[in-house]
């Protein structure tokens, strides 16, 4: 008896298979993360030492008699300069880590020589980026919790507002922060050598978004640039929610701006990915590095 075979593709993409692919990438990234214990050490040490350098400089600027601190409190309205600085530096570190992790996700695959073969699998290609985002969100949550814990324990920083509203500001910031990471990933894969781009973007956050100072101290033209960066609203909102006892209504201008930036960066990130995907197929550039 002769068996008949109906022609069909070996891969049958569907929602479930895409979800499985996404989960496989999440698991792989988590395995790689656990493989290098030095990163776990960095997870505990970096949240402490990066802000500490600015905090110790601020301590020196405060003076022996606290006269400098009195000026700072008058200028910023914040009595706790440690909490003030920690919020700004944590936002900077978050964006910096996303740029390196999510922004270089595809580039690292390209360097390892696995991007082209992954590209041939019958999966939704955007799931490669989303898959990298899953473990990244988990480690970043741990990072932020460890930061709060360490500064609470060692420096006596206490919430003077609502932790839930601070959490809300963080959640609303996720689309903007990661959307920027997605857009970045597509640019990196096209421009290849892209460390300088990371330095540029994180440098802009460092200069304009007020990580250790109020944006009002910047010259007018710099303040204008700051208003076009989501990290400015994130830092402002988190400081207000955590230390100034701000209400939801007080935070709404920051939340609204963050939501708008989130829509913008996620859309741009996705569109750039699609553009890069088409361009890579047309030019065959995906396997080059």
């Amino acid at each position: 008896m002769e068996a008949t075979l109906s022609p069909q593709s070996l891969g049958r993409p569907g929602f479930i298979s895409d979800l499985r692919a996404f989960w496989a990438i999440v698991r792989r990234e988590w395995t790689i993360f656990k493989r290098y214990p030095s990163w776990i050490i960095a997870l505990f040490i970096w949240p402490l030492i990066f802000p500490m350098m600015y905090i110790l400089t601020a301590r020196a600027l405060s003076g022996i008699d606290g006269s400098g601190l009195a000026v700072f409190t008058k200028t910023t309205g914040a009595s706790n300069f440690i909490g003030y600085i920690v919020v700004g530096t944590t936002v900077w570190m978050w964006q910096n880590i996303v740029l390196w992790d999510v922004g270089f996700a595809l580039r690292n695959e390209q360097m390892r020589g696995t991007l082209e073969s992954n590209w041939l699998s019958p999966t939704w290609r955007f799931s490669y980026l989303l898959g990298h985002t899953g473990p990244q969100l988990i480690t970043m949550t741990m990072f932020i919790l460890i930061t709060a814990l360490e500064f609470g324990l060692f420096f006596g920083v206490r919430f003077n507002g609502s932790p839930w509203l601070a959490l809300l500001v963080m959640l609303v910031s996720v689309p903007a922060i990661y959307g920027l990471g997605f857009a970045f990933a597509s640019i990196v894969i096209t421009a290849k050598e892209a460390h300088t781009f990371v330095f540029l973007v994180r440098g802009l956050v460092m200069i304009f978004c007020g990580i250790t100072f109020p944006v009002s101290l910047l010259p007018g033209w710099m303040q204008t640039i700051a208003t076009w960066m989501p990290q400015t609203y994130m830092i402002h909102g988190m400081r207000a929610a955590a230390f100034a006892n701000a209400s939801f209504a007080d935070l709404w201008p920051d939340l609204r701006a963050l939501l708008l930036f989130g829509v913008f960066w996620l859309t741009l990130g996705y569109l750039l990915f699609r553009w890069m995907e088409r361009r890579a197929r047309r030019t065959g550039a995906i396997g080059q590095y």
Binding site: G68, F213, L218
Partner: peptide, 12 residues
């Protein structure tokens, strides 16, 4: 740069 502007917040 953040040190420069932070210093301004502590200066008269």
């Amino acid at each position: 740069t953040p040190v420069y502007f932070m210093g301004k917040a502590f200066s008269t």
